[in-house]
Write a protein that binds this DNA or RNA. Structure first.
Lengths: 332, 332
DNA sequence: ACGTACCAATGAATCGATTCAATTTATGGT
DNA sequence: ACCATAAATTGAATCGATTCATTGGTACGT
């Protein structure tokens, strides 16, 4: 394996000079620099990161742990984070906890051993003890899609109450009045917030009413079941607008309403989802939905982390983004 | 920052002993070991990976670069690879090239600098020059979902010809005879292979015929367009079985056929896709499809890499997996 | 010709864990 | 009690890049 020493010998300079060619090129005379660079590519020298960061005490790496890489929200966020990190000459190590506490823990261990500069994490469950440990070791943390109730660390998240509000307000503005909310258990914070927003919107319009339909899960199949349940009532008992807590549910509802009951969307029924997954624009009737500013969140998360690393702002910051309404055929 | 030296001082032993507690616990007397472990947790000592691997010359890390983390095929593969690597006390660094040569290159650079043990890669384009460089530096490589035509490195991939064959053979065995293949340009190797398999299956049945419909892309919308084109012909010109080169296309075809033309699946038309994406089982009529053994591929890729690292088998191995038919409602 | 800056280049010390030859301590047999 | 042997412990050397005080050169002004 080629080391800086080999390069130095071959180029007839001291190791310090080679190091300067790499890190402070302007301190080295042009002739020398060229000679060294020539030797570097001739020998195929590649910097040993371990030695660098042993000396430096810190790596140029940021750890990112997401709940599910295959979730488009997280993969897009990860990409944005990587791009932003690259701009600051850092690399992102991506870990997929797959909603598993054990995997999350293993990644945190690895990250600590690697002496990452900081950690971005969308935590599985309660990470209080982990937060303690990381901060005890001086590793900055930024929460993603979650706020720290105690405000110890910075976070980026989305205002789901506003998202729920804008979804329902959109249907109300289109003249719909009998609104149904379809979502899984409100134990899930995000679902509860979206419902809260929906309630606020309905409260502002005198003759509007909101009905809550609890689905068994946040899946297409659960949505289909809820859709059938609603459609069975016949024309009169039917709501004229349905807000689903995510796009998968909405797709299920659409399948039930359209195919199994032969109703028309949006004529008989307006429908809106949440998340703007890829599929939303490919449904039979393109699905209106609420989109989170994924890329901005990824970039901002990295920026908050860099701030924390550089100790610029000692106090933590909770950045909350506003979601965006995407209006498509299902609410025309 | 707590180092092994601090632990040694506090526990009144030599640094070598602390190291042995961590790496060769049975060489240390029980009493000493306990004392050292107590100090370790008391001081919150965390091994410095940089120092370890500087000394060792090699990390305990494997680099994995996939084309798209949000693709369920790759995310499942990545998870399996991580699990397998963990069993061998290694960690996987996951990089998402997002089909971008620049990103791929950046990851390879980082991996080289980090002195990863080896690299698993699903390459974006031609990586001949990269392969040269990596092998020149002695970094073992295993290709994923791609074979090296020159057989220099090991690989894991899927027999797409067999997959195409079993999809069409399945429909033939159900009595279908007028088969259509819907796929994007056969420039894509995978599409070409699946078509080849379809042709083989049809060739084995005297009165069966195969028609090729070229879609503009491998998406739901492109599938819908192709489906409408086919359905426009009316009953007589219609095939009685459609094989789509992936599930997205099949979902599009299903939308067109079912909703826009009011045909029945599978009565009027059998339909089968490829990939077994999550959505396949949630379509209105559950979609039959062909599944690749994703987890096995991930595990095997790691195993081939470990073999190459340990230099057990100097010659490369091309492992080709057989896909599996998943029969659902759309081909009953 | 001499002194003062300034620019380039040098190379020893450093980071922290591991390794291994050397040394100390413990154990058992007679 | 003594020696042989095994077990436990020690600590200096090592990995490779960076840093920085120091040295060697060059240019310029007087």
């Amino acid at each position: 394996m080629v080391s800086i020493k080999d390069v130095a010998d071959q180029a007839q300079v001291a190791v310090g000079t080679v190091s300067n060619v790499l890190n402070n090129p302007d301190r080295v005379a042009e002739k020398t620099r060229e000679r060294v660079l020539a030797v570097i590519s001739e020998l195929g020298f590649v910097r040993n990161d371990a030695a660098r960061q042993l000396r430096a005490g810190l790596s140029r790496t940021i750890g990112l742990i997401v709940l599910d890489v295959s979730n488009p929200f997280f993969s897009a966020l990860a990409r944005a984070a990587e791009d932003r990190a690259a701009e600051s000459d850092s690399t992102v190590l991506l870990g997929d906890s797959a909603h598993d506490v054990g995997r999350e823990g293993r990644y945190l261990d690895v990250f600590e051993q690697q002496r990452v500069k900081g950690v971005l994490i969308s935590p599985v469950g309660n990470i209080d003890s982990r937060l303690e440990q990381l901060s005890a070791h001086g590793v900055p943390v930024v929460l993603v899609d979650r706020v720290d109730p105690q405000g110890r660390v910075s976070s980026v998240s989305v205002d789901d109450v506003a998202g729920g509000y804008m979804a329902v307000q959109h249907m109300l503005s289109r003249g719909r009045r009998r609104i149904a909310f379809v979502g899984a258990s409100t134990d899930i914070l995000q679902v509860a917030d979206r419902l809260k927003g929906a309630q606020q919107a309905v409260a502002e319009v005198p003759d509007a009413q909101l009905e809550v339909v609890e689905a068994t899960a946040m899946t297409v199949l659960a949505g289909r079941a809820s859709g059938e349940l609603l459609a069975e009532r016949g024309r009169d008992g039917l709501p004229d607008g349905i807000f689903c807590a995510n796009d998968l549910l909405a797709i299920g509802v659409m399948q039930a309403v359209l195919l199994i009951r032969g109703l028309r969307i949006p004529e008989d029924l307006a429908l809106i989802g949440y998340d703007d997954i890829d599929f939303a624009q490919s449904t039979v009737v393109p699905l209106s939905t609420v989109r989170r500013p994924t890329e901005l969140m990824g970039r901002t998360a990295v920026e908050l982390l860099l701030e924390a690393i550089e100790g610029l702002s000692p106090e933590s910051r909770q950045v909350i983004f506003q979601p965006e309404l995407v209006s498509r055929g299902s609410t025309l």
